[in-house]
Design a protein around this nucleic acid. Structure first.
Lengths: 200, 200
DNA sequence: AAAGTCATACCAAATGGTATGTGAATGAGA
DNA sequence: TCTCATTCACATACCATTTGGTATGACTTT
């Protein structure tokens, strides 16, 4: 029953509206009515597609994580050298720091803050979302480590988590400062750190 | 009129309860009633001390920022060498990463995410809170730069902001992973980065 | 010093608005 | 005609805020 509804364009409209609103205000401060207004639908429709606001939250988050993963793949590029892939990944991300796709923050970060201690399902989803992101990047770092003997030893997993921390933290700072250029700076520093580890 | 109420113990109880709850759930998801229950007071009392929930939010945030600033001073210690002060600051912070004072997250980060795009007053308060924090740390970095010719040039302000980003991001990641040890790791990496800049 | 006045701290219940969620009715397409 | 998307009006619950108190203690007034 619910499978048929899964990829309806109306459902997508609701998810899009919810994502946009929650990205800037968070989950709790975004009402179902607000979402429906933005999607030009009524609440009745909303509850036809989602059995509760919580379920919508989970759906938005899951879709966001999936999108992000795909985005990560394209962002990593096709350079045969893993270290070059890492550097261009960081550069590209830094370049797009101020454009609208990223400049509103990260839903994963938002939901982690707001909901992890309130909703175990969302917490698990956030944990897994971050894990997927770090794991993929750690893989690149491990490949780079294997190929270019780094000047200093490091744990790929830990260094990947550090990147996520830098990104998430910069997004918060950027929101407070109303200026997302801070994300580009954060990524530059992270890159410099990685360079200091590899010695090149 | 409101000045007399400013440092009453009852008011403090309300602020304490609100801070604790909002630190884990955020502002929007924390109701006035919940705060009153936690503080063992009634809503009537609440509105005797605060004219609105928003005002309470601002008060909690301001007190949090002030506390944090004091904490920063003690954390920096009294070592005459600025670079040593920086390193011990980072170490001490890393050590206390898992104890209850820090392990619940940072209100400044929480409010930035949730409220900055909704409430300009809170946004300004967050911005200033972060600015105070970074400025103080940047001062230390500048002193260290002046004393120990660093191997690479850097902007103290930017490097200080980078620390805040690492801390905030680690706290988010920690919440998602239900494990705040990530903060200690983040601080270790930041320290290693600073060391790579100074060459010692 | 007793009685009266007043401000303050606190409380309980009511109010009004807003939130989520429901269910019957409508409409369009197969 | 049957199904499913969508709407509309409504039920229900919750939540911030208000109102109308009581109790206490301090400060006058006599």
């Amino acid at each position: 029953m619910r499978t048929a509804l899964a990829d309806s364009p109306t459902r997508k409209r609701l998810l899009d509206a919810a994502e946009k609103l929650m990205l800037s205000q968070g989950f709790a401060a975004t009402s179902v009515e607000e979402i429906c207004d933005a999607a030009k639908l009524t609440k009745g429709s909303f509850f036809h597609y989602f059995e509760s606001k919580d379920e919508l939250g989970k759906a938005v988050l899951e879709r966001y994580c999936a999108d992000r993963r795909k985005g990560q793949e394209t962002l990593l590029g096709t350079n045969p050298d893993p270290l070059s892939r890492i550097y261009t990944y960081l550069d590209t991300m830094a370049k797009s720091a101020t454009d609208p796709s990223m400049s509103k923050g990260c839903l994963l970060g938002m939901f982690s803050q707001e909901l992890c201690e309130l909703n175990p399902e969302i917490q698990a989803c956030c944990e897994q979302g971050f894990a997927g992101w770090t794991k993929r990047f750690a893989q690149e770092l491990a490949a780079a480590k294997a190929k270019h003997a780094p000047r200093k030893d490091f744990r790929p997993q830990e260094l990947a988590e550090h990147l996520i921390a830098v990104v998430q933290g910069s997004l918060i700072l950027g929101k407070a400062q109303k200026d997302m250029r801070i994300l580009a700076k954060g990524l530059r520093h992270y890159k410099a750190y990685v360079r200091s580890v590899f010695g090149k």
